[in-house]
Design a protein around this nucleic acid. Structure first.
Lengths: 135, 135
DNA sequence: GTAGCTGCAAACTCTTTGCAACTCT
DNA sequence: AGAGTTGCAAAGAGTTTGCAGCTAC
């Protein structure tokens, strides 16, 4: 049983065939797939799966904090398994997503929220850039 | 003629009654109104205005960089006039949006992008928090 | 005069939901 | 057995668009 399946079981979710497939797709993903992509990849493993189930499952997994839902400026959601905390830089030319992490940044945003009189609950930081061409 | 109207004219937009009304609503807004809010406020000034025109106008103004379109995690867009650069902290309990600016943060995100080999073109930073209760 | 703008309604995209059948525990 | 899950199709929210008439320039 995969780690994700384990955590779902602990949360009281029934481990159906469809869920196993979706968890497998998410676990194998090396990118940040859209709902549509998850659906397509899942269908390759079980062609009877419906997109409603994909939506329902991703939404459940999001509530359990097993996955993170992103809304990059594209008009739809993308998902990734919630492992280590990091942020994203989106390559505007290729759509590729680069992950990064920066402690100074983490401390700074906590401080900003506190100075404004708020407890930081969540945040969103995305950079959009173009690759510097080497000569 | 307002500054916004001036800039629209320079961009070659026809200054219709509807546009004047929408620009006035945006200029007077002290919050970050949704399309629906802009529509409602505009209708108080000209009850014949249609929501399609509001969408079309906001979209045009966005292309001209006269307004900024935000997609806070709410499922719809919000707009504000593009003046000084700043970021937003969204109060999760009231939906209120607090603006802030931080030079250290600006420098840091430039540095992060550069270190990853990218020229920073755009970015998005939003904090979501709850007001610290005073006893 | 005419290119551009408008209101209306229909269409579109992404997402959610009611329901009857099915399945994991 | 029974609560939870599924596929399907319909509905929902937010947004865009085709079209015929109108208006700023």
């Amino acid at each position: 049983m995969s780690d994700l399946e384990q955590r779902c079981a602990e949360a009281g979710l029934k481990m159906t065939g469809q869920r196993r497939v979706i968890l497998k797709v998410l676990g194998n993903a090396e990118d940040h797939p859209s709902v549509e992509s998850v659906y397509e990849r899942a269908r390759e493993l079980d062609s009877s799966i419906s997109i409603a189930t994909v939506y329902r499952t991703l939404s459940l997994l999001g509530e359990l904090d097993l996955v993170i839902r992103h809304e990059f400026q594209e008009g739809h959601s993308r998902y990734e398994v919630n492992s280590d905390h990091h942020h994203h830089l989106v390559d505007l030319e290729t759509g590729e997503v680069v992950e990064f992490q920066n402690d100074e940044l983490e401390a700074l945003k906590e401080k900003i929220a506190r100075d404004l009189g708020y407890d930081l609950v969540d945040h969103r930081l995305e950079l959009y850039g173009k690759r510097i061409k080497k000569k």
